[in-house]
């Protein structure tokens, strides 16, 4: 742990802060006086929660619903990304040339393509073919209301199910490429002596990996892994282009119908910050905890 440094305020700091404050004040002044824009912050709240007259209860509205969808996407996307990332990470360090080539191609292909392009390719070409083949749509439409309700809570409503599954796979495959590299680096960071000792004890390749190398690698890669999950929350905005109704999508919708551009996106940004910053704080805690348990 670092020792906390004493904060010392110099005259330079004061000057810089003053300049900054003046700058902010100027922008606020220009925006309120100079910009021809009618502010309506109050209207925003109703997009977070609204009062339902039929049930006489407050219910979540578009923005909050979007945020929940983003959270669901992030959760399942993370799990998929871990699966892809671990498998491909193991491929990357394999002794088999074929596996290494598969792993390498995967990583290079995904990481060198704009996510937007990848999503379009995946959605319009691949899942357009695969989803009907797997019968995802039929499955959800023909299942009982109970099952539909269950999937509505954990993933998506029936009408958006197929698109959401597709979005999930895009996110999982996309972030998986980054996790692959994290896993590979983690495995390669383990000292050679650990391999040699477990080899000498007669453990098989699989056992060496499973009982000696991976547990240690996991400990080391937990912080960068957690950072990647935060990226995933942010990157999930990209699936709005395939009409998955997550936070950014809802932002676009509301903007189109109300034109409260600045207010909407300020709110959307705030909601993203709530999600990512709380994750960051959790990761920070985790790192401190791990550093202590060493």
């Amino acid at each position: 742990m670092y020792r906390k440094k004493k904060t010392k305020i110099t005259s330079l700091d004061i000057i810089l802060l003053s300049v900054l404050l003046i700058g902010v004040a100027f922008v606020v002044y220009r925006v309120t006086v100079g910009l021809n824009y009618k502010w309506n912050w109050g209207a925003m709240l109703q997009y977070i929660v609204r009062y339902d007259k039929e049930t006489h209860r407050y219910v979540s509205n578009l923005l909050l619903q979007g945020m929940f969808t983003t959270l669901r996407l992030s959760f399942w996307g993370t799990i998929l990304a871990i699966l892809f990332g671990t498998l491909m990470g193991l491929f990357r360090v394999s002794t088999s040339l074929f596996k290494r080539m598969v792993g390498r191609s995967y990583v290079e292909l995904i990481r060198n393509m704009p996510p937007l392009v990848f999503i379009f390719i995946f959605y319009f070409f691949i899942s357009d073919q695969i989803m009907p083949l797997m019968g995802v749509d039929d499955f959800i439409r023909s299942s009982s209301p109970g099952v539909q309700n269950f999937f509505d809570i954990i993933l998506a409503s029936p009408e958006l199910f197929s698109a959401t599954v597709s979005a999930l796979f895009s996110l999982g495959i996309f972030e998986g490429a980054y996790i692959t590299e994290i896993v590979r680096a983690g495995i390669q960071s383990i000292e050679r002596g650990q391999w040699e000792a477990s080899y000498g004890l007669g453990l098989s390749k699989y056992q060496q990996m499973r009982y000696v190398i991976l547990p240690q690698a996991l400990q080391r890669i937990l912080p960068p892994l957690a950072g990647q999950f935060i990226s995933l929350i942010k990157d999930s905005a990209i699936v709005s282009v395939i009409s998955v109704q997550e936070l950014s999508f809802q932002g676009t919708q509301i903007m189109a119908s109300t034109y409260y551009t600045i207010e909407i996106w300020t709110f959307v940004a705030a909601l993203y910050l709530i999600m990512t910053l709380s994750c960051s704080l959790a990761v920070e805690r985790l790192e401190v905890h791990m550093a202590r348990s060493r």
């Binding site: 000292e191 002596g193 650990q194 040699e196 000792a197 477990s198 000498g200 004890l201 240690q216």
Partner: peptide, 10 residues
């Protein structure tokens, strides 16, 4: 059985 210079315990 092998014993290493740097122990290599897990």
């Amino acid at each position: 059985g092998m014993v290493f210079q740097l122990f290599n315990l897990f």
